[in-house]
């Protein structure tokens, strides 16, 4: 049987673990408000960039347009036949202790790697968990094209711009026909959902067209505007994905820590009952010994 001291020690250690989990939960819930605000603040820019790109749709799709001669046109060309190189942007967290958050993203990444087994694969990974996972993965034709570690919970637009630059470079250097994306989407405080989709080439059906830019005058030229717009649109999109993942990570950690501290509470309750039983048993034992000792003397 465990001694009283052992049980007390165990209770004490579990209580302090619980305290830590509660603290982590509180940190996450404090940060999540900021993360949500950041998402909210970034929305007008991203939305407008998408609308403007959409407004140029006619010009982009017009086969005689100069845009077709640009290297950047590949981001809009769905008919590309060269499908030998693909890229993936994988967004995970830097830290664990957030439930299945990293596991689902990594599982999806593994699936992606298998699906593109025959192709040259270039992965840009955000988050330590994803990077460590990919480093251990020994698969042919898999290249770690870039990594960004330690940006959460302070992901900024500059980070997104860096990811965009790397993607641009990669796509030109290795003739990449498709860029996929895996990240956790922030649905609500209670739920995150994994998104695995094609980021590029550009899908016009994803954005609703509002106004029509055909009456506009462009300065210096439509082409220049397009070239200014495109990187900003891409950065704004990547920025949004980073923020979504950041908020989702915090929400996941909050939930995981809440569940864990609840479990810790249950264990403490159980151990307390056990402690009381053991203490009672010891006391009963001692009384029995004293009584029987006294009886022996009296007899």
């Amino acid at each position: 049987m465990e001694s009283l001291r052992d049980i007390r020690q165990e209770i004490k250690s579990i209580k302090s673990t619980k305290q830590m989990m509660l603290t982590m939960k509180m940190i996450s819930s404090a940060r999540i408000k900021k993360a949500q605000q950041q998402m909210e603040d970034g929305r007008p820019f991203a939305k407008k960039m998408a609308v403007m790109i959409d407004n140029l749709r006619k010009d982009i799709q017009n086969p005689s347009s100069e845009i077709h001669n640009l290297p950047a046109y590949r981001f809009f060309d769905n008919s590309s036949t060269d499908k030998n190189s693909v890229a993936l942007v994988l967004i995970t967290a830097d830290k664990g202790l957030c439930g299945a958050f990293n596991a689902v993203a990594l599982r999806a990444a593994l699936k992606w790697v298998r699906e593109n087994d025959e192709k040259e694969k270039y992965i840009f990974v955000i988050g330590k968990k994803g990077r460590d996972f990919l480093r251990r993965l020994k698969v042919p034709r898999l290249h770690l094209a870039g990594e960004l570690i330690g940006i959460f919970p302070r992901a900024s637009y500059a980070h997104a711009a860096m990811i965009k630059d790397t993607l641009f470079e990669l796509s030109q250097k290795y003739n990449i026909s498709r860029v996929d994306l895996i990240y956790n989407d922030f649905k609500s405080m209670a739920s995150q959902s994994l998104i695995s989709k094609t980021f590029l080439p550009f899908n016009f059906n994803e954005i609703p067209g509002e106004e029509d830019l055909s009456d506009f005058i462009f300065e210096p030229s439509m082409l220049d505007i397009f070239l200014t717009l495109l990187p900003r649109y891409l950065s704004a999109s990547v920025y949004r994905f980073l923020l979504e993942s950041q908020a989702a990570e915090l929400a996941a950690r909050m939930n995981a820590m809440e569940a864990a501290s609840k479990n810790a509470g249950d264990i403490v309750d159980k151990l307390s009952v056990k402690l009381n039983k053991v203490r009672q048993a010891t006391i009963t034992n001692e009384i029995t010994e004293i009584v029987s000792g006294a009886n022996a003397i009296n007899n």
Binding site: L213, F216, I217, F218, E219, P220, D224
Partner: peptide, 19 residues
């Protein structure tokens, strides 16, 4: 601060996109 020099805008301006 438009690309080709400073550009003034008053109400009633033509529809325009500038770098």
């Amino acid at each position: 601060p438009a690309y080709n020099g400073e550009m003034g805008v008053l109400p009633g301006h033509v529809q325009y996109v500038a770098k």
